[in-house]
Design a protein around this nucleic acid. Structure first.
Length: 607
RNA sequence: GUGCCCGUAGCUCAGCUGGAUAGAGUAUCGGCCUCCGAAGCCGAGGGUCAGAGGUUCAAAUCCUCUCGGGCACGCCA
């Protein structure tokens, strides 16, 4: 069943259209004044203006026409006995306020019909799949070899994972790809750095023809030290830079020892990454890193050359991208003056592969906002050269995670906080809180671990997802440890509390029944909130902004908590009402578990 | 220099396809556990929506400019 707002919009639009107005005027929104109404339509104001008429007069006319259709569009099919005498009851009441707003309040019986519709649809809670499913490749994660995951990698993984879940639920064919940074100049840096420290290793002996050791000469912690050091030298030390560039070229042109060494770097990094992703409950369908496109790049470059869109400039092969609209757009460097490839080229090859191999209709890249220019270039070049076909390429940028000082996040010591340390920290805090709360419910150590982990992951993910995707946001460790207010644990707490009530009800032989019309404001508010779900989900899907779903979960939690305090379910004496409340609580639980699920957050049975 | 993002309560953020009294959380203050889980609920105070113009019956929202912060701009990714 469609949410009330959408159905009302259709009704009002029909009326506006019939009167010769733009259908858009019929748009109904949730009321800005919940004290006055549940929904509102402002179309009469704009409509009256275009005809230079009195808006209140037009609003009156609209109301008349809407009411004439109302009972037919929204039949009240179940009137409780005490309302039989009111057989002419309208499905909603309309009124005019202020300069010409039309206010709408649903009849309680109609409100209940929406909620019952959801309750009858356990699997989808009334959310229809998209009418035109597409094949969608979603590129997220994107960690780099030699740099373990730190807080900066959280966003892409968490946001991307949620978008994957949402798209899948909406019926698209989704392919999640972790585009690992495993093939750039950074690899040359690592090779040179290691060669200086351990030149005796067989990987550096060009004459070596035997089998290289299966054991990696370095661990991830080694790499994490080597990379920043090498990176610094690369910028200041010209000799080192030249060596690095040569090593990179040699690696990319297949030097055996370097390739073997590179494989070790990748392996130690990936096995560590996999553990981090497991802790976060994040999975990928593919791990097609930059190196995967290695073989495809030379052929691609040849084809592009043949297309006549490339030219030589300062020794490099480029695709010029500046035009009248974008005179400042820098060219895309296809081949470096030294002969190597940059990530522009591998990204072009990636675009091509996603179109040709995956037959993507849509390709989303969940990548840091600082790469905006890069993607503009790549996508423009891909379009120019015809690589994109009919596929739509979209960069979904996200903002930087800053510390409380407003600068990119660092630990107190000034270092980069590793993801696993962060997870550990949040889990420890969760454990502490569990100890304070669960006095009469001692958990086994295993269950304690599991719950703490769920609470910790919920804290991290929710904190990240609740913010507007494209803006920078402040990552406040102190707040993370608090778990109060608008946080993941708040939503978990509400959900777990419902589970607890339902368990208790079951043990007392009580069961959920038919949801009946609300009699209290707290009950009405909970229903109103829940019937919005499909609307919110559609918005989240269209905008690719999971924070709408966070907001929704928070609102439902809040509405439930108020309802919970106001309506004591297990103590209720009217069995019909009690059964209805149990059904309402069950539905609230299902909504929360559903919304959290799409955010990638799982709910423990108790906490 | 060119371009992009941002500036809303002490702090962290929603709201931005223009609409009524700008909302949450947090912090502060005051209530609520013999009663389904108080990580909760109820209430109070707290705002020149950075500033100035403009468009409009109506601007936090659209346009222009200024100020302030962040980021990106050819051989790192």
């Amino acid at each position: 069943m469609e949410p009330a707002r959408r159905q009302l919009t259709r009704l009002f639009s029909d009326v506006f259209t019939a009167k010769g107005f733009d259908a858009k005027l019929g748009s109904v929104s949730v009321s800005d004044r919940p004290d006055l109404a549940q929904f509102q339509c402002n179309g009469a104001l704009a409509g009256a203006k275009s005809l230079k008429r009195n808006p209140r007069e037009l609003a009156t006319e609209i109301i008349g026409a809407v009411e004439a259709l109302a009972s037919q569009r929204f039949p009240l099919n179940d009137r409780p006995n005490d309302q039989l005498k009111d057989a002419t009851a309208k499905p909603f009441t309309l009124s005019i306020a202020g300069p010409g707003f039309i206010n709408i309040v649903l009849h309680d019986e109609l409100l209940v019909q929406f909620v019952r519709g959801q309750a009858a649809d356990k699997a989808r809670l009334g959310c229809e799949p998209t009418a035109s499913p597409r094949t969608v490749v979603i590129d997220y994660g994107g960690p780099n070899v030699a740099k373990g995951m730190h807080v900066g990698h959280l966003r892409s993984s968490i946001i991307g994972d949620s978008i994957v879940r949402i798209y899948r639920f909406m019926g698209d064919k989704v392919i999640g790809d972790n585009h690992v940074g495993d093939w750039g100049t950074q690899m040359g840096m690592l090779i040179c750095q290691l060669r200086e420290k351990q030149p005796q290793l067989p990987y550096f002996d060009p004459g070596f023809s035997g089998t290289y050791p299966s054991e990696s000469p370095v661990t991830l912690p080694d790499l994490e030290v080597m990379y920043p050091a090498a990176s610094k030298r690369y910028e200041t030390d010209e000799t080192f830079k030249a060596e690095v560039l040569r090593a990179t070229d040699e690696l990319q042109s297949g030097r055996r020892g370097y390739k073997a060494l590179w494989q070790h770097f990748v392996n130690v990094t990936v096995s560590d990454l996999t553990r981090d992703y497991e802790k976060l409950g994040i999975k990928f369908d593919y791990w097609l890193g930059e190196s995967f496109y290695e073989e495809r790049m030379p052929a691609l470059v040849e084809r592009l050359k043949a297309s006549g869109l490339t030219e030589m400039s300062e020794g490099a092969l480029i695709i010029p991208l500046a035009n009248e609209q974008e005179p400042e757009m820098p060219p895309l460097i296809l081949v470096k003056s030294g002969g190597g490839f940059l990530y522009h080229t591998s990204d072009l090859a990636t675009c091509e592969y996603r179109v040709e191999h995956f037959k993507a209709d849509l390709a989303l890249a969940v990548v840091d906002a600082r790469q905006t220019m890069h993607f503009k270039q790549v996508f423009k070049a891909a379009r120019l050269t015809g690589l994109t076909g009919k596929c739509e390429f979209v960069h979904l940028p996200f903002g930087t995670m800053n510390g409380t000082d407003g600068k990119p996040f660092k630990t107190r010591a000034g270092g980069v906080l590793k993801l696993k340390d962060l997870i550990q920290m949040v889990n420890d805090e969760a454990k502490k809180r569990l100890g304070e709360l669960a006095v009469d419910r001692p958990y086994s150590p295993e269950e304690l671990e599991e719950i703490a982990s769920k609470v910790g992951v919920a804290t991290l993910k929710y904190a990240d997802l609740k913010h507007n995707r494209s803006a920078d946001y402040v990552f406040d460790l102190e707040k993370f440890a608090k778990f109060e207010g608008h946080t993941g644990p708040y939503l978990l707490y509400a959900t777990v509390r419902i589970k607890s009530i339902l368990r208790k009800a079951l043990s007392q032989g009580l069961s959920a029944g038919k949801i009946i019309a609300p009699t209290r404001e707290s009950e009405r508010r909970l229903m109103l909130e829940m019937q919005r779900l499909a609307d919110v989900l559609t918005m989240t899907y269209n905008e690719r902004e999971p924070h709408h779903l966070c907001e929704y979960g928070f609102n439902v939690s809040q509405a439930f908590n108020t309802f919970y305090t106001d309506c004591h379910i297990l103590r209720e004496t009217d069995p019909d009402r009690q059964a209805s409340w149990l059904a309402l609580a069950t539905l609230a639980h299902d909504h929360l578990e559903f919304a959290l699920g799409l955010l990638g957050i799982s709910v423990p049975d108790r906490m």
